[in-house]
Nucleic acid binder design. Structure first.
Lengths: 339, 339
DNA sequence: GGCGGTCGTCGAAGCGCTTCGACGGGCCGC
DNA sequence: GCGGCCCGTCGAAGCGCTTCGACGACCGCC
């Protein structure tokens, strides 16, 4: 019932019979303290249930041990992926003794300015970065340690982490081409996502197109809205125009289910008539029916790396510019050789 | 390039030619300051781009202006709903000058203890609360202002906000019964969700069962795993056992698509043969085909209310114990009179 | 046996802000 | 015309922590 925020470092010092600074050094390890004193202090910490006051610590050490996770909060976001990122970020941050402040950029530049200037966070993690993201110049101006999840057009001097989506597109096409498919289509993100220049969508498209050209495969690229009806419309049109279409790359989690459900109703069995490969979380691929051959977005891994890099930057260590994670294709039941 | 964290309240005071405390009072409004001084100070704030140091402010005022958003981070979570909550929470918090710290409870009780004791946050917002949530007793012990999203079994002395899921179940059944359906089924959350006693699942079930009994409708309740295959299995079994089943309540976002896709393949058209009503975000209902009659989970509204209540508690104002939002059923194209 | 060097600990000075009590100067009333 | 009062402002004392310089004790060496 009583809130024990009264326990200060001074209480611990008194309880252990040492100076305040000694307690501080025991806790931070920044100076050598004899084993016996150290043990006594830690015992007192335990006994009193002491936790350092975050504000005071931040004030004195000029370090908040908090990182900001900046989400754009706009439509067409890949919600489950974003969530996975966020969770990976929080979990990883905790392992390096940091907490995570959740920030949306709909406050505009002022929001980021405020966060940075108030010394509330030591670094910024930007998610869902667009090719021409308005937050990027701001970031440069702020001069705070930061890591981007995604790849803007001008990544100069920035630290970025992302899946190699160009490679993901390539891998998908190589897989389909290897199975003998000669005409394939990329069913992409909603048009709005391309329009605002979201990096992963454009890079995947390029990967698909480049690889198809290289391998002599005919590839057609279509944005795809969410919703069963929209997907059906798109598929009908696609198959009408190219009846020999036999390979499909789907980069839209929300479309995966509808695509697999709709194709049979259009007289195309999966994988006998049409092979489908997805770029989506494993979870979706596993739950689909038939189970979907896919290139997963390694959200966890990206989140982990991003935090690790950010913390290193906060500590002033040098870090690489861009980290692109290699795509891996997992074969399941939705792809088969071309008849 | 230069990070301007050097701008302190002292700089502002000097620039405006007043005392530090005067600047503080201008900014907080806690004392009357003459209009002329006030204007001058604000001009200096602007000119220098001053933002108060969060740590120092927290230390001196014993208030961090931050609330913790505690997510459980477990499987079977309704990811998009959670995300919607989170966004609503962040946005609302900003309107009352608070930020949001994202916390997962997988650190266990120690995590919450730490957050509370470090005075990092002024209050806690717990999401996805179970009927017998282990965090609830801890919360009582911590004695920090808190609000739960969800309804635990023992809500005594706690502040809770949630949709009235019992009412949601009732509304669905009333709607179907009103259309003349005499045998209906609730396709619920995955079994794991019931097993761990998640409140909304149990309350919905009770609402369905109670109302069916009252109206003389036969209702059968089944948990439902995610994934197209699982949904299909469930539906086949259901229809085999009760061929006269003509009404379906679906409380599982991930199942909505598969259900609507699968029913026609089992010889049941929607809504001609089977009426389907969902308890899910509007977004899903709109995108479904046919568009789904549904009771939406008002995530935004719940998030807003929760933050508002929490802030009031932080300020020591009295608040109501539990707030249950009224369910509203939106009619769309997936329900029709029984033939 | 005294001198320099460690090693372990302490004290005090801030970090940037809020807040409390005090204070000077107008204004009022008598 | 003077005491009292309010209004607007100031100075200073912390809030709880980190960190720097200092200092005593103990060691080994010449």
């Amino acid at each position: 019932m009583k809130s024990p925020d009264l326990v200060t470092i001074a209480d611990v010092a008194r309880h252990a019979g040492v100076a305040v600074s000694t307690v501080s050094y025991v806790l931070s390890g920044k100076r050598v303290i004899s084993e016996v004193t150290r043990t006594r202090v830690l015992a007192s910490v335990q006994a009193l249930g002491y936790h350092p006051n975050a504000g005071a610590r931040a004030l004195a050490s000029r370090r908040a041990n908090v990182i900001a996770l900046v989400l754009p909060l706009r439509s067409g976001m890949q919600v489950p992926v974003v969530m996975q990122f966020a969770m990976a970020v929080v979990t990883t941050a905790r392992t390096v003794d940091h907490d995570v402040l959740l920030v949306t950029s709909d406050e505009g530049p002022a929001g980021l300015r405020r966060i940075a200037a108030s010394a509330m966070v030591d670094g910024l993690l930007l998610m869902d970065v667009e090719l021409n993201d308005s937050r990027v110049p701001l970031l440069r101006e702020l001069g705070r340690p930061s890591v981007l999840i995604g790849l803007p057009a001008d990544a100069d001097g920035l630290t970025c982490v992302d899946l190699d989506f160009h490679g993901a597109g390539r891998v998908c096409v190589e897989h389909l081409a290897g199975l003998g498919h000669r005409r394939i289509a990329l069913l992409g993100a909603p048009a709005a996502v391309y329009d605002r220049g979201t990096g992963f969508a454009h890079r995947t498209r390029a990967g698909v197109v480049d690889t198809a050209a290289r391998l002599g495969v005919d590839a057609v690229v279509r944005p795809c809205e969410e919703g069963t009806a929209a997907v059906r419309r798109e598929l009908v049109e696609l198959l009408q125009r190219w009846p020999d279409l036999s390979g499909l790359v789907v980069q839209n989690e929300a479309a995966v289910g509808p695509v697999l459900a709709t194709l049979p109703t259009l007289g195309r069995r999966v994988p006998e008539d049409v092979s489908v490969v997805g770029i989506c979380p494993d979870q979706f691929a596993e739950q689909a029916s038939p189970r979907l051959t896919s290139v997963p977005v390694p959200a966890e891994e990206v989140g982990r790396q991003a935090v690790a890099l950010l913390v290193r930057k906060v500590h002033g260590e040098p870090v690489p510019g861009s980290t692109l994670l290699q795509p891996r294709l997992t074969m399941r039941d939705s792809t088969a050789p071309h008849r």
